[in-house]
Amino acid sequence: MQKIKDERLLLKNLQNLRIAYILQTLGIIGILGYDLITKGIDGMRENPLWFVFILTTVVSAFLSMNISVEYESQKRSPKKGFLISLVVLTLISTIIGILTSLSEGFTAINGVLTAGIIFICGIVPISYLYYLRKKRIDDHTD
């Protein structure tokens, strides 16, 4: 099998892959929706397709971050954006942690765990965006 070198064929191949990905995602959502209706939310989460759906959604989001950073129109300071995002993430995590600990049936430990998990889950994409922006600026200065 030879590599495709024609840009039109490459674009057509990428469009075909996008259509296949959309159909596959719609199929997974349909199966998970059926499980949700028949078995409830716990039954839906037990289906291995749930893990596949979450994993592909996260990977797709991270890959699209790379594209959006490449085409940002303004020159942003990566450090400033990182610090602003970090402050906002800390505030959101703290507020959710406090509200969780004040909720009936939850303790302060539950609030700290919830805030910690939200913070860790938020710091990963923030750090990745910082890395992409810094790499872009470093590539343009070379």
Rank of each mutant, 00 (worst) to 15 (best):
K75C: 01
P78A: 04
G27D: 01
K39D: 10
F53P: 07
G40N: 05
W50E: 05
Q74G: 08
L63S: 09
K80Y: 03
K39E: 10
W50N: 11
L86P: 02
V69F: 00
G33A: 04
K39T: 07
A61P: 11
I19T: 12
L83W: 05
L49R: 05
E72H: 04
L26Y: 00
R45W: 09
Y34L: 14
I31P: 01
F62M: 15
L17S: 10
V69N: 02
E46H: 07
L23P: 00
F53G: 13
F62I: 15
L32W: 04
E46C: 01
L86Q: 02
I31G: 04
Y34P: 09
L14F: 08
V69Y: 00
G33N: 02
P78M: 03
L63N: 08
L32F: 04
V58Q: 07
K75F: 00
I37F: 12
F62C: 12
P78E: 02
V52C: 05
I84N: 01
S60F: 08
T57H: 13
M44P: 12
L36P: 09
P78S: 07
R45I: 10
L83F: 07
S73I: 14
S85M: 01
G81S: 14
Q24T: 11
K79N: 10
Y34S: 12
R76M: 12
W50S: 14
S85H: 03
S77M: 00
A61S: 14
G43Y: 03
A20K: 08
P78R: 03
Y21T: 14
F62E: 11
Q15I: 10
